[in-house]
Design a protein around this nucleic acid. Structure first.
Lengths: 344, 344
DNA sequence: TTGAAAGCGTTACCAC
DNA sequence: GTGGTAACGCTTTCAA
């Protein structure tokens, strides 16, 4: 017996509900199967030209749009790549990288879902991510543990890529060597003959993940050289920078590595306003190589960070999705390179 | 008769496929319905404590995670808010706004999907968006026509909000008055006694949407005053700025409005390198009120743009979702305000 | 060439 | 209290 769904009688002017393939079939006078064949251009089945036309016309008339969730439910997989929003204030570098990545993934016909994090602990969050049954998950910033990874894999994720300082066994990893950034900066300042190096550490919460390794990198670079490292907490505000600058001379520093270019610009300006000569009295170097660093005078020296291109990462994801059996790749990135300009 | 799905015999060490509520039910020795009741804490039905425990244990043991798509297929609606990625290079202002918005929507338990645009024409793109059956769609940058709106509504979107210069009949709108930004800048320069105003127009493709109205705003402000407007195409590179600066004096301009602060900083630096006194010879004003504008000397004047807070917009979406019948709201935003510093 | 029907994972309704 | 079963919208195998 044909099953008749208890459809509500469509009153003529009621806002009719969203049309399904069954509606199209009805209007075209064919079966749902035929509709599917026609609209998906299934090559295994030949449908007569008049029928095709009728189906297309019916679909157009009703404004039919297939239901992606139903489709992937049936198919057993989706092409969704889930990327949790980092719950820390990210800089322009990350935003640019993310946009590039998203674009590249779109080109490969993935749908990118940026998932707004609320639960800070990755292993709980992973459950929420898994509910969406993404084919791949790209986790920035080390919020994933082995537990979380297991949940994701079990729920069908064919590729999990972490993007951060540490790797998780069993997942692909793009290792961001923040320690190396600090190390480059430290070595550079040392080579320029500096012996008392300040390191700006942002006070904004959530950035410790990046700022601590950068600080440690400087420490390592100066180890055993007799040069000193002084930690300098700084909020991203003009007033805070001015206060730090006001007590600068007593600190006895002859160089400063400022976490990134934005903090570097902020501090350098404050130092100049205080009458401190740069680089003569104090050398300044930032990181991230932002365009704007070139606009100050002296031009800001910086540690350029070689992020993987969005395209490369998208291709890594795609490879992993196509062949989930492949051994997890670990990409050491962040080729760091000092760009010496005039401030150091 | 109980239906027995033809499940593949699970070889002991094979990567077992993703567990479903049926698996949990089997392991716990109860029905799928009971599993659903227990895991969703359905209050209408009371389940014995031992049963609850067995279900929870089975779920944990299997690492069961519910399938969001199946759930929303069944429920007939999702809580997905779809936001297409603008296919133009967006500035830090938009990125910050987007992050805020995303965060606010998450708090209201919406899932934000940033959809990577490929088809430039909104009315076609709308079909792709509609496949995801989002409960709300937030379209930045005027890529939506009446056709597209109709498709979205028909496919069940309960709220459609455009974010741009023009509104679409029937959709909520947050109107960004770029023309007003230019107007403010123009009036300000006029009030400072300037008579020959240059307007920087980025050469980067895709920004015309913003730059043209800003230019027109300046034109309108100066109309009938005898002051002149000169359009100045400029790429976002130091060399381009230097070239423009090199031919500056012959242009005979005594002021320039530079699209936004980034272009303003770039140009101002190039002008200074050319020996042009700012603001004496040429006044400079930007827009967007970026922190970094305060770091140049002279400090950069700017047009501050009052974007709606992410929270406000999230609440607008939520209201519209809860009561789709409500008349579309039109929010005129962009209270523009000139922040005069030292460059004008 | 077309159609009937099974089934994806979930929840709501209605018997037991 | 608990369990069977239909139904969400779609694809696909098998039969006609």
């Amino acid at each position: 017996m044909v099953h008749i769904p208890n459809e509500p009688v469509p009153s003529p002017s009621a806002p009719r509900s969203v049309p399904t393939s069954a509606d199209v079939a009805r209007l075209a006078g064919v079966s749902r199967a035929t509709v599917s064949y026609v609209l998906n251009n299934t090559s295994a089945v030949r449908i007569s030209e008049p029928t095709r036309r009728r189906v297309h016309e019916a679909a157009k008339e009703l404004g039919y749009v297939p239901h992606a969730a139903a489709r992937s439910l049936r198919a057993g997989h989706s092409r969704m790549v889930l990327i949790p929003t980092p719950n820390v204030p990210v800089g322009p570098l990350y935003n640019q990288f993310f946009n590039e990545l998203q674009w590249a993934l779109s080109r490969l016909e993935y749908t990118v879902v940026q998932y707004g994090d609320l639960s800070p602990h990755g292993d709980e969050a992973a459950r929420a991510w898994a509910e969406l049954r993404p084919v791949a998950v790209l986790v920035p910033g080390g919020g994933l543990g082995p537990q979380g990874l297991a949940v994701l894999k079990r729920s069908g994720a064919r590729a999990v890529v972490t993007l951060g300082a540490e790797r998780v066994e069993g997942a692909h990893a793009v290792l961001l060597d923040h320690e190396g950034v600090g190390h480059s900066a430290g070595r550079h300042l040392l080579a320029r003959g500096r012996r008392a190096v300040g390191v700006v550490v942002p006070e904004e919460p959530g950035l410790e993940m990046f700022s601590k390794p950068r600080l440690e990198g400087v420490r390592r670079a100066l180890q055993g050289t007799g040069a000193t490292v002084t930690e300098l907490p700084l909020a991203y505000e003009e007033e805070a920078a001015a206060r730090l600058a006001a007590r600068w001379r007593p600190l006895g520093l002859d160089a400063v590595f400022a976490y990134n270019d934005e903090y570097a610009m902020l501090l350098m300006r404050a130092l100049q306003d205080e009458g401190i000569a740069i680089p003569r009295e104090t050398a300044v170097i930032g990181a991230d190589d932002l365009m704007l660093g070139r606009l100050l005078r002296p031009r800001l020296s910086t540690v350029h960070i070689e992020l993987p291109s969005g395209r490369d990462l998208a291709e890594l994801v795609d490879r992993a999705v196509r062949d989930p059996g492949v051994a997890p790749e670990v990409h050491e990135v962040l080729g760091t390179r000092v760009v010496q300009r005039e401030s150091s």
